[in-house]
Simulated assay, not measured.
Amino acid sequence: MGANDFITLFFLVAAVLIFFQLRSVLGRRTGHEKPPVDPFAARQANRDVSGQEEKVVQLPRREPVDEEQKWVEIDAVAPAGSELNQGLRDLVRADPSFRPKEFMTGARMAYEMIVMAFADGDRKSLRNLLSKEVYEGFEAAISEREARGEVVKSTFVGIHKSDFVHASVKDHEEQITVKIVSQLISATYDRNNTLIDGDAEAVAEVIDVWTFARDVRSKDPNWKLIATESEQ
């Protein structure tokens, strides 16, 4: 077996290991979900009557652990005694299955899905991931872009950093705000295929502050994006 064969075998084994690690995170269940679905991914049970797949923001959740471990996990992502730390503690008391690190994993995946769906003009995916108000804003921007005959070509490079900013529970609604620093290649072309914005090769840093929410009383584990803000 030559050197190239060893390299090929190495990457094949690595791909298989990554696949099973992702399944171990995305496949967890609390016992209260709708028919089986992977977080952020559509399966047969999520098809609508037209046979098309639907996408949802089902942030990873797991069964409650002992009380002390919950607080240790919160202290690991938010300074003890801070407003954020207290907010996360209030959220865990209202929703014992909530786990900060698993939520952030799901939020990062949702972020990429939403960014790319907006660039592609994928209204169906956005409708299932966004609140009504946020969807209307995104849809209006897509419609204006289409009316001008513009096309956006984007490549999602990755997420450099993500942090919790705020967490709270009010009127039975849990809300979590996260700050995400990502890298994106994006270029906008007019109807004549002339570049009018962005760069088809340069990687740009994008900083967004997004807020996700769900009704803590609901058996539906899906979260939706309810507010967006960009930083320069």
Score class of each variant (00 low, 15 high):
residue 19 F to A: 07
residue 97 S to H: 05
residue 179 K to N: 12
residue 150 E to C: 05
residue 140 A to H: 12
residue 175 Q to C: 11
residue 63 E to Q: 10
residue 205 E to I: 13
residue 153 K to W: 05
residue 3 A to L: 09
residue 71 W to C: 05
residue 100 P to I: 08
residue 88 L to G: 08
residue 207 I to T: 14
residue 204 A to E: 13
residue 229 E to I: 04
residue 58 Q to R: 13
residue 149 G to I: 01
residue 1 M to W: 08
residue 216 V to I: 10
residue 179 K to F: 11
residue 139 E to V: 13
residue 160 H to W: 04
residue 62 R to V: 02
residue 88 L to Q: 07
residue 47 R to H: 03
residue 119 A to M: 09
residue 232 Q to L: 15
residue 193 N to D: 09
residue 29 R to M: 08
residue 157 V to L: 10
residue 39 P to N: 10
residue 11 F to R: 07
residue 187 A to S: 06
residue 227 A to F: 06
residue 56 V to C: 01
residue 198 G to I: 06
residue 204 A to N: 13
residue 156 F to I: 04
residue 80 A to T: 12
residue 128 N to K: 12
residue 85 N to L: 00
residue 113 M to S: 12
residue 60 P to F: 04
residue 53 E to N: 06
residue 113 M to I: 04
residue 106 G to Q: 00
residue 201 E to A: 15
residue 93 R to M: 14
residue 74 I to V: 12
residue 82 S to K: 01
residue 212 F to G: 03
residue 25 V to F: 15
residue 105 T to E: 02
residue 101 K to V: 11
residue 7 I to W: 05
residue 80 A to R: 11
residue 216 V to S: 13
residue 216 V to N: 06
residue 8 T to N: 02
residue 51 G to P: 01
residue 4 N to Q: 04
residue 38 D to L: 10
residue 111 Y to L: 05
residue 88 L to V: 03
residue 48 D to R: 09
residue 155 T to L: 13
residue 36 P to T: 05
residue 75 D to T: 09
residue 64 P to S: 12
residue 230 S to G: 07
residue 125 S to P: 00
residue 135 Y to W: 06
residue 216 V to W: 06
residue 106 G to W: 00
residue 178 V to F: 04
residue 93 R to D: 10
residue 76 A to P: 03
residue 214 R to S: 00
residue 215 D to R: 08
residue 106 G to V: 00
residue 118 F to D: 12
residue 17 L to W: 14
residue 232 Q to N: 08
residue 209 V to K: 09
residue 168 S to V: 00
residue 93 R to Y: 08
residue 76 A to S: 10
residue 121 G to N: 04
residue 135 Y to D: 02
residue 106 G to F: 00
residue 228 T to L: 12
residue 92 V to L: 11
residue 152 V to L: 15
residue 131 S to L: 01
residue 228 T to Y: 02
residue 65 V to N: 04
residue 151 V to H: 07
residue 54 E to Q: 15
residue 182 S to R: 07
residue 90 D to C: 02
residue 119 A to D: 15
residue 152 V to Y: 06
residue 217 R to E: 14
residue 106 G to H: 02
residue 75 D to S: 13
residue 144 E to N: 07
